[in-house]
Design a binder for these strands. Sequence first.
DNA 1: CTGACGCATTGTGTATACCCAAGCCGCCGA
DNA 2: TCGGCGGCTTGGGTATACACAATGCGTCAG
Lengths: 226, 226
Amino acid sequence: MRASDRAYRTLLEQIQSGDLAPGTVLAEVEQARRLGVSRTPLREAIGRLAADGLVAQASPRVTVVTDIDADDIRALFAVRRALEESAARIAAERVADGAPGEPFAALAERWSAEDPQADADAYYATIAQFDQALDAAVGNDYLIAALRTVRTHLVRVRRLARDNPARLAASAAEHRLIARAIADGDAELAAHATHVHLHHALTAILASLADASDAPRVARSTPGAA
Amino acid sequence: MRASDRAYRTLLEQIQSGDLAPGTVLAEVEQARRLGVSRTPLREAIGRLAADGLVAQASPRVTVVTDIDADDIRALFAVRRALEESAARIAAERVADGAPGEPFAALAERWSAEDPQADADAYYATIAQFDQALDAAVGNDYLIAALRTVRTHLVRVRRLARDNPARLAASAAEHRLIARAIADGDAELAAHATHVHLHHALTAILASLADASDAPRVARSTPGAA
DNA sequence: CTGACGCATTGTGTATACCCAAGCCGCCGA
DNA sequence: TCGGCGGCTTGGGTATACACAATGCGTCAG
């Protein structure tokens, strides 16, 4: 693998996981030394992160990890709603038009069979499979690229708002409906179920954020509302 | 301005204008020499173009200008529909919620007053102003970034499909309705009028493409159907 | 004559050196 | 003592040198 790819993946992971907190300054020489690559591939990695919106130029000389607040999450979900509703609708239409619906039927089965107590990691792994099936079903590179950007940011949002088991179970049920609708070729239901799911997801995330600001963690990097 | 920015702008312009035809191989040393910059900033420019989807790695060693066909245009419009309908709806909602609607009222006026015989350049200049007003009204950086990518590709699509005066006049009327709906804060009308406009635009473009393949230009870079 | 192997060439990936601009600190003058 | 100016330091932008890998062509063997 190329050094620039390694640098990108490493920085992406560390930003998404919060190891590199929002506001952290990414100096080229320092990061290059830390990641064991030279400045040239590191610059390319930072450029890609900037294109993703995960870092930004605070001033002509300093690049910082971008922050994400409740307004960002609302804005992100507005885009997500637009793209995922379309994706669900198109996928269902294509299934109705003869494309294979088995992957979605299988996922719907997974979500009904799966232990609702399963941990968040298993849940998100299944979500990733669903996303992959959706991408394959829509077969639209432009849409996939746009969704990829949204998902990149979404990883950070999920970290900000830890899910509770009840929400996870409800979310699984919502996804079961979406997957079933796509498998059945019901475009309108797939789109509306997606809308409903995203509404609940956004509500839960914002509520979780409000809780977190009421009882902030120790060693919180940003001052918060407290 | 930075050398990498100059290289990016120049290459972007030349790809969008067709000076660099689809399939053209972009070798680093050759392009760096041609644009009068060194390989380092040129690599950054090519990287940005790759992120935009305007160039792609055909093989590990060759980067080529991507092609765009009827299927690409349909895929692009699927994304465009999702994003612009949302943008129009959100803009109208925000106007209804107290945001200034004057820019859209002024644009609606422009489109009703404007000479329907006006040339395509003037038409697209007004469209650009409308896009700018829309971006400002929605105030959603994630949505704006996604729309920016779509518009980047759209420039190439417009070049492929030369517009006729009748379509330009009809399109102006469609935009007048959209702008009025936003100015009036009518979100549903704004979204549906956008949907209708994009349907007509896509239909006209595909028809124009079909005409063009019936009577291909001389010196056409790709063999075409003829 | 054909196919495979090896060498040469070319171009990308990476490292590094140089240059310039911006920010900061200290000094001087008011 | 405070404000402004100038130099120094630091870091990003660019150019270039070097290394490696892939591709293409030529040659040799079957």
